[in-house]
Amino acid sequence: MALKTTPDPQTAAEPSMAEADRVLTGGTPPIVIPDQAGDDPILAEFGMEEHPQGGFHGLLEVIPTRADIVLDLIRANSLWPLLSGLSCCAIEMMSTATSKNDIDRFGMFPFRASPRQADVLIVAGTLTTKMAGPLVRLWEQMPEPKWCVAMGTCTTSGGRFKRSYSVVQGVDRVMPVDVYVPGCPPRPEGLIYGMMKLQELVKQRRGEWSTYVDRGVQRIDWEGDVR
């Protein structure tokens, strides 16, 4: 459940006090209340003002946040993976859905064939440079909220194909990854463990909307040199 964080080079150049606070307080962004209250006449009527991050605070913040906790619990228990296997790991990914390792127990079963209806992209197998573009397109076609699980060593780091001329050295070079499952290939139990870690991640998010948009992972344009 490693959230891999790469700071944006431009903002990383000048760490502000707020940034330092963010690091010290373990990632919770400080809420900065602007000086002049009541910019928005409608909000001012309720004694509220705009949230610096674009949302609301005060009374209105409570309701969507509490709802989000429930929604996140719901999402954590209904993670539909995309029916997309790249290579060897795909067989073990299918094996997790079979009689012995039945991932359906956790509500992760209907492997949707269309990315529009999937929640989790399990990148199962070696990602080649030729496949990188289509895979990123699949990822972008999935609706938010969505998560990515990198399954197998080839996917997490290039693995045994580290020196190959046509293999992307880790899928996190082209898209953000939420959970890494090592192994070549991981046993089905390993993938189920990774998916349960993902469930924890989803539950822990506690309705922080910002995580939908910015995962703290810098997006790398795949069309260039993806290695």
Binding site: N77, W80, S99, R105, E144
Partner: peptide, 29 residues
Amino acid sequence: QLRYGPNRIGPWGMFQSTIHGFKVLAKED
């Protein structure tokens, strides 16, 4: 298919489809 099927949500997993339904409603459209 000789599997258990959903068995985590509610007794015998009987609320799994409800969870699926609400999840779908809360996805990006």
